[in-house]
Amino acid sequence: MDEVVFFNPGDSIGNFHDHNEAVKTAQIYKEKQDENKRVLVVHGVDNKNFDIFFADDVISHTNEQQAAQQKNEKPYRISDRI
């Protein structure tokens, strides 16, 4: 079963056509930036691309009202947790 999460697309760290490239870049980014932060590789909204986000940027119940007001939330399917 796919896990669908919501993000503001503007929070994306990167966008890739190739899944392996996205995973590799996420691993490098995490290693260079902050090994304590979780990074998610998600299947893009159009199901053709992969995006990288920080797990902390997931729109949750605590911040969904603000995101809904801005109408910036988009659904993504989690591909990998790094």
Rank of each mutant, 00 (worst) to 15 (best):
F7P: 03
N36C: 09
S60P: 04
A67Y: 01
D34A: 03
D46T: 08
G44H: 01
V5F: 09
F6S: 02
H43A: 06
N8K: 03
I28F: 09
A67E: 01
K30G: 02
A26W: 05
A68Q: 15
S79E: 10
H61W: 01
D56T: 12
N49I: 01
N20V: 05
S79L: 07
R38G: 00
K30W: 01
S79C: 12
N72Q: 05
H17E: 07
E31F: 14
I52G: 04
F6E: 02
I59S: 10
A22I: 00
G10K: 10
A68K: 15
G14E: 01
Y76S: 01
G10M: 06
N63D: 08
F16I: 00
S60D: 11
K71D: 12
H61V: 08
I78D: 03
I52R: 07
F50R: 04
A22S: 13
K48V: 02
G14V: 02
V4D: 00
E31T: 13
A22R: 00
E64L: 14
H19T: 12
Q70V: 06
N15E: 01
E73Q: 10
D51Y: 05
E73S: 12
S60Y: 04
V23H: 00
N72T: 11
E21I: 08
K30T: 00
E73N: 12
Q27P: 01
H61I: 07
D18P: 04
G14C: 11
E64V: 14
N63I: 08
N49Y: 12
H19Y: 11
I59K: 04
N63E: 08
T62A: 05
D34G: 04
V58A: 10
G10L: 11
K32I: 03
N72G: 15
G10V: 00
A55C: 13
N47Q: 14
K74C: 13
D46R: 10
G44K: 03
K37M: 01
V58Y: 13
P75S: 02
L40C: 12
D57A: 14
K30V: 06
R38T: 03
A68M: 01
N36R: 14
Q70S: 14
G10D: 13
Q65F: 10
Q33M: 11
K37H: 11
